[in-house]
Design a protein around this nucleic acid. Structure first.
Lengths: 197, 197
DNA sequence: TAAAAGTCTTAAACTAGTTCATTTTTTTTC
DNA sequence: GAAAAAAAATGAACTAGTTTAAGACTTTTA
């Protein structure tokens, strides 16, 4: 994939909520950095300060923390047409507690902190874009955290498969367990149980 | 409390992120509805379509869903200077799955769906206000959903007490259990255990 | 201010999910 | 394409949190 394609993708993503003139499109693209991450490479590691927010043009990454026992907790799988990063660290400049690791060769577009600030000055419409983007993210986070509490592990697995059917086939069972919030052993049990149903 | 006080509160809240002229302040206030809810009364019930987003000037409310077994899961306690409602239902006009019930006599300011739309037309600065508000909510939701997964019940209780020391004394142990995600019986055990430490 | 309703405590039996240990299968790497 | 590394499956012993039940304490309401 050349960068023309990733630019088209991100412009289509933005066009969901705001209309940009040709000039604004060019300006926006000029504020983005092109980033490639090989499978198993890290885009971010705990302790660093997040310098970019990312749009994924191609590939798949897992976003996770490690608890005190060193066990990973995956908070999201980021694929094409999604946004990722650690907004808390990006905004506050505090060190992140997240790792972001590519599970496939991936191509991203990143916006730096200073360009993120510039963007609102130069194209105020982007306040609206991000207002709507964050509003929608908030809605889906709230839904998800409710599911996390009120459903048992089997139901959470079935809900994930239903909501992200394409993702299930691109990730390992172990990573899925770390996302669902159970051990790989129990995940294995669940899957063979669900398949038998 | 008369409404002047609640207006001052909401304007101070908004002033955290944007500056308004006197005229804009008046315009904004004119778009808000004054709402009072008595203790134990509902601000919202599952099945309704959310018509307002609310700012709490005074009081305390619990936001919760009921699972298939009829057990409540509290997703937040909303107190003075916080915002509440069901944004998903407010935005999509789908019926809400939430109940919002006052745990104390409360006074709120509500913005209707049509006024929310108007607000952005009349005072575009509010795109920025909500962009930042949602961004910060998102950050705290992400933090919280991570805690929910990686901490055990005792740790979740201690974290809640530390983060919201004023709220703990205003709610019942039963409601706290429904928020932490455990049974009231186990909550009772935890509290006597933590007090003995 | 008495009775009713709701909340809190305690304890024993139970269950969803963990831990640990071993074997089989799949994927990666040279 | 063989060897090494990682992922998946299986099973037995274990634990954090649930369920059920019953009595004590507090708050609400008439």
């Amino acid at each position: 994939m050349n960068f023309k394609e990733s630019h088209t993708l991100i412009l289509n993503n933005v066009a969901r909520f705001i209309d940009l003139t040709e000039l604004e499109k060019q300006k926006y693209i000029s504020l983005l950095a092109e980033v490639k991450v090989k499978k198993k490479a890290y885009l971010m590691q705990a302790g660093e300060i997040a310098q970019y927010e990312y749009f994924i043009a191609k590939g798949c990454l897992k976003v996770y923390t490690l608890d005190e026992d060193g066990a990973p907790h995956i908070s999201m799988f980021a694929i094409e047409d999604y946004w990722t990063g650690d907004m808390a660290s990006f905004m506050t400049k505090e060190p992140t507690r997240y790792f972001i690791k590519a599970t496939e060769d991936s191509e991203l577009l990143g916006i730096s902190r200073s360009n993120y600030g510039l963007l609102f000055q130069e194209i105020p419409k982007f306040e609206r874009f991000y207002r709507i983007l964050y509003q929608r993210s908030l809605i889906s986070y709230i839904r998800r955290s409710n599911h996390g509490i009120s459903l048992d592990a089997v139901e959470r697995y079935i809900a994930f498969k239903k909501k992200y059917p394409k993702v299930v086939n691109r990730i390992t069972q172990k990573d899925l367990a770390a996302y669902i919030g159970i051990t790989p052993e129990f995940m294995s049990k669940i899957i063979s149980k669900v398949n038998r149903m």
